[in-house]
Simulated assay, not measured.
Amino acid sequence: MSLPVQKSVRSSIERHENDLYTTDPEAVRLLLEKERFHKNVLEPCAGLGHISEELSKHGYNVISSDLNDYGYCTPHRDFLTDSFFDKHTKEFDIVTNPPYNVSIEMVKRALDVARHKVAMLFPYWYIIKFYWYPPCRVYLFTRKIDIAKDGDFETYHNKNMKLYAWFIWEIGYYGDTTIKYIVNNKRVTKQVEKLEEEYSDKSKYWNYSKENMKKEVLKLHAEKLTNREIGRRLNIDEKTVRNWLKENV
């Protein structure tokens, strides 16, 4: 995927002349532990196929393209303007690491094209760019991930200076953004190890507020919110919502 990391890019023509930066497949694998997508997925900035190949390994049918020709996928297909995407609107979910100089345009286009869900990798501080249509979830990596020039992960391992996050949009969802973590630390300090151990037993905190949470579930149910919407609002899973409602409705 073409990604302007070292310098800003003013146009798609200039971008074509830039170096190729690719996404560590591990970052995709960790996302797929958290999110499920429609069986058909579109990767419109596929580059050398690092995201596409990982999606395929997990059983997804992937349509891959790129503005540039790197020998992997359908080239010279501009996601922002190519009519191919208009002809196939609402057929695919979208997972990609887009060019950041057109991040807003890419998100807007994806929301128009996607069937249900959009996942894009951005530096975590890009959250402020999307207040006009907030993502429903943001998965923040706790450790920097590798973004490699020309796909050379051996040379560029641990050279990345940015903290990244997966931004998830669901079509039709407009509400608060939930921040979650993808814990990809290789090593942590003794202090953090101690904190992880101390706070690993969530029951002592959960039990304290469980009854209040049940009351909130009932309140939102009375307001005609769906179980899925209630779960997102309260950051609990939908099964828990159903079970609590069975107890009280």
Rank of each mutant, 00 (worst) to 15 (best):
H76S: 12
Y126D: 04
F79W: 10
R10Y: 09
L220A: 12
L163M: 11
P98V: 01
E211F: 05
Y126W: 10
F167Y: 12
G172P: 13
E43M: 02
E53V: 08
F79G: 06
G49P: 07
K90A: 09
K149Q: 10
F85V: 03
L55K: 03
W166C: 07
N235V: 15
D152L: 01
Y131S: 11
G175K: 09
N158Q: 08
W206H: 13
D82I: 02
L31W: 04
K180T: 03
N227E: 12
F37N: 07
L20I: 14
L80T: 06
D201L: 01
H157R: 15
R109K: 15
E33K: 14
E14Y: 06
N18W: 05
V41P: 08
W206A: 15
I127V: 11
I51S: 05
L225A: 05
R36Q: 13
A119R: 02
K144S: 00
V188H: 01
T226W: 09
M1Q: 11
I127A: 03
K246P: 02
I104T: 14
N185P: 01
K186S: 02
V118W: 02
Y205P: 04
F141Y: 15
V102E: 04
K90N: 14
I147L: 12
S103F: 00
M161G: 04
E211N: 08
Q6G: 09
I104G: 07
N158C: 06
D69K: 09
T81G: 01
Y156N: 03
N185V: 00
P99N: 07
V138T: 14
V183A: 07
E54Q: 09
F84L: 10
Y60A: 05
N248Y: 15
Y60Q: 06
F122M: 05
K202R: 15
Y164T: 02
L245T: 09
I104C: 02
T189G: 05
D152A: 03
N248C: 08
C45L: 04
L42S: 06
V217H: 05
G172A: 12
R232K: 10
H88L: 06
I94S: 04
V217R: 08
T142V: 06
D150T: 10
G49V: 04
I182W: 00
S11L: 06
K129E: 07
N18R: 14
E17Q: 13
I236L: 07
S52V: 13
L218S: 10
V28F: 11
N40Y: 14
K224D: 12
M213N: 10
E14I: 14
K144N: 00
E216H: 08
Y164R: 01
Y70M: 06
D112A: 13
